[in-house]
Every structure is written in structure tokens, then in C-alpha cells.
Computed example of a mutant assay.
Amino acid sequence: MNLFRSVRTVTTASGTGYVDWHAVAEAAKASTDAGSLDLSAAEREGYAADVRDARDRLRTLGGVDFDLPDTVEIQNRHHWIDANVDTFRRVMAPIEREAPDALFPGVTRVVNTGTLSFMLAFLGRNVLGQYDPLLLAEAAPADRDHALYFVHPNIVDVADSLDVDRPRFRRWIAFHEVSHAAEFGSAPWLSDHLETKLERGIDALVSGDLDREAFRELDTAMTAVEGYAELLMDRAFDDDYADLRAKLDARRQGGGPVARLARRLLGLGLKRRQYERGAAFFRAVADARGLEGASAVWERPENLPTETELDHPDRWLARV
């Protein structure tokens, strides 16, 4: 890890765009220790077995038909940063193309490059696993090969810091990410739905406006995505992992002052709210209609809960 090299890379950002994406990746990696990927054969097989077990268990439990993405990777932190620079670049592309020329382009480029490298470095040090539906990629949603990532050094570090068994913790993360594969795999329309809302919001920003309705609908859909995954996790493990859940919930809220500020700036408090609100909705639905009833959310876009229904599951039950 070399903070001096990271700062120097940002301050010498070049090019003609609003962001020097090469510098973003290099600065984020310079300020982040890659971590070890020195896994034993047993550890690699452990990941593979956990992913397979999660697929089989969640297929049966949720009554949903899905398969795993072809791309399942065990990554270090630098691998994760590289993969997600591409995601950030896709999201920012319309803004970079259409935004008016900056008054001080060099300064703007340095500030944007520094901001994005900080975000990716912080996330790269904290993300445990990721299901990536590759939103805004060039291929049509139905033709995209979604991806599943596990950031092994972070999984090891967090398991140790929480004082939990590493294989047990790894299995928990595998089940959570495969839960997202279950959602996107059983709802082929979901990627397109999220992408449409995201594009609407970005187009409005490019035009100097704020489409609050688009971002509200995107938040509602993501709350359903996170909440359903939490429900599947609850039912897959019953009370066996209650201690681990409590420790993870505390971690989502914890950290030092800098970490808490970074989480707030990156909207991670919103993500925690999505977990909690979505989980409460789906638990109420599953208690009333079982897991297969809750899985009806993914049958078609119209079955997604509305903003109001998230807080009043009885209204969703009456409608759907």
C-alpha cells in the first residue's frame, strides 16, 4: 500500500474526460493492500461446495428455478477494484458524454478522479461478496453473463475480527450472494427493470434535473432485492446463524469516525435500511403465504411491492 503514489496518481490525472479512469484504478489500488489469494486446495473446494450447496438449497427452499452465473471468482481487493471500475465507468459514461464543458477541466478531472478512487478503495477494503448483474453493459440483459465475486482477504479479515469460524462465515457469504443469483435468475426481467430506472435517473441528471420518481422506484426495487435475500438467509439457516447475523448487523453500523463518515457519504446507511425494511416486508409475506408466496414477487415487474406496500405488506397481499 502506497498512499503517496495514490495521491500523486490522482493529482497527475490526465486525458480529456471528466475522469481519468486509469488513474482511478491505479490510485485506488495504490492505497489498498491487495491481500493474499494463497488458498489451499481445500479452501478453494470449500468455496465451490458452498456455492453449489446454496444453489441447491435455495432452489428447493424458495421454489425458484435459477442457475449460477458462469463467472464465479475468488478475488483479492485489486481484482475487485478492477471489475468495479468498469461498472462505475458505465454508469458515468452518459454524464461524461453530455455534461457541459467544465470551467476548470483539469481541476474537475482531479477532483472526480480522487473522489472515485477513494470510493473504490474504501469499498474494496470492505466488500465481502458481490453478485454483479452487469447493468448498463453493451449486451442486452438477457445475453449478459452475470458474475459472482468473493473477496477472499476481506472474508478472512472480517471472520477473524468477528471471532467466527472462517468456513462458517464463508458459507454465510456464499448463501447471501447466491440468493441474489436466485432473484435475477428466476426473474429475467429484473436486470432490464433496474437498468431502465437507472437510465431514467441518469438522463435527468445529464439534463440538469432530478427524477426523484425514478430513483425512488430504483430504491424500492433494490429494497425488495435485498429483503428477499435476507428472507432466504433466515429460512435457510433458521436460528443456527443468529449470532453471526447479530455481529454482521453491528459491523454494518460500526467502525471508527472516518469509516462511519465514508459509509454515510457512500450511502451505505441507505443499503442497511434496504436490508431491514425489505426483510420486514418479506417476513410478513412469508408468514402469511409461505416462501413460495413471497417468491411471487419475481413473477413479473407488476408484482414488485410499491413504496407504500413495503411498509404495509397486507396491501401487497391483497393486490397480488
Rank of each mutant, 00 (worst) to 15 (best):
G106P: 00
A147V: 03
R315T: 07
H180W: 14
A159E: 13
R166T: 14
L291E: 12
R171I: 06
M222A: 08
F118N: 12
L317E: 01
D239E: 09
A229C: 13
L304V: 01
L37C: 09
H152S: 06
F118W: 12
G106C: 00
A204G: 12
R263F: 02
F122T: 10
V158M: 13
L232E: 10
D33R: 13
R89L: 04
R263K: 15
A54Y: 05
D238T: 10
G114C: 04
A140Q: 12
R315F: 06
S6G: 13
R273E: 15
L190A: 06
Q253P: 03
T32Q: 01
V297P: 00
P141G: 11
G269K: 09
F104T: 06
E138Y: 04
R166Y: 07
N154Q: 15
G293I: 12
A318K: 09
E26M: 08
A147K: 15
P167K: 13
V158H: 04
L317H: 02
D311Y: 01
L261S: 04
D287N: 13
R315C: 00
P153V: 07
G17A: 11
N2A: 01
S36G: 14
D160F: 10
A229D: 02
V7Y: 07
V110M: 12
A259G: 10
V111S: 07
V7H: 06
L304P: 00
A93P: 01
M92C: 00
V110R: 14
V111F: 13
R245S: 09
R57A: 14
V158S: 09
A250W: 12
P141E: 08
I74D: 03
D143A: 15
L120N: 05
F66H: 10
T113Y: 02
T32Y: 04
L198A: 14
P94A: 00
T32C: 14
G293Q: 08
D238F: 12
D314I: 06
R77A: 11
D165H: 12
H146L: 11
S14Q: 15
T306P: 04
L266C: 05
D65T: 15
A30L: 10
Y275C: 09
N112T: 00
R283N: 15
D157T: 11
A174R: 04
N126D: 11
N2I: 01
R8I: 11
Q274C: 09
E226P: 12
A30G: 02
D132P: 03
D70R: 13
E183H: 15
A142Y: 06
H312Q: 08
E43P: 02
T60M: 11
G293Y: 10
W172G: 12
D67L: 05
V85P: 01
Y275A: 09
S186I: 01
P94R: 02
D67Q: 10
G46R: 06
T16Q: 14
A49K: 14
D53R: 15
L270C: 03
A140P: 09
A280P: 04
A159H: 03
V111D: 03
R300D: 05
A236E: 00
F66T: 14
